[in-house]
């Protein structure tokens, strides 16, 4: 059982981790919607320092409204950015926080 399902509203956390982190700054703290589940993968934050014995983590594809990510650019309202986010970087959000 995964923590999130397709269609769930989520927020990307700003964990402030150093090192080989695969969650770029431009999506941190933004609200998005889960659009797919990718399976479990070893955490790149562990792999980068040679720790291959860590627990595999759930990976999701999350969609964001481009107009919310880049408010200073002119993006049509339906344009999206879709990116992969590991479970520990996500928090559940309510529908009202995210209104795509």
């Amino acid at each position: 059982m995964t923590r999130f399902c397709e269609g769930d509203p989520v927020q990307v956390l700003a964990l402030g981790k150093a090192g080989h982190v695969r969650i770029p700054h431009y999506v941190r703290e933004h609200f998005g919607t889960v659009v797919g589940y990718c399976g479990t993968y070893l955490n790149p934050e562990d792999l980068a320092v040679g720790n291959t014995g860590g627990k595999a983590v759930d990976l999701y594809r999350v969609a964001f409204d481009q107009s919310a990510l880049w408010p200073d650019e002119a993006h049509p309202a339906h344009d999206r950015l879709i990116i992969e986010i590991y479970d520990h970087w996500l928090a559940p959000a309510t529908e009202t926080e995210h209104a795509p």
Binding site: R22, I23, P24, C38, Y41, P44, L59, R61, A63, Q66, P76, H78, D79, R80, L81, I82, I83, E84, I85, Y86
Partner: peptide, 15 residues
């Protein structure tokens, strides 16, 4: 065209 939705996919992780 603006009416065509653009989805940008950032292959930041394992896919």
């Amino acid at each position: 065209p603006l009416e065509v939705r653009l989805d940008v996919h950032d292959s930041n992780a394992d896919m």
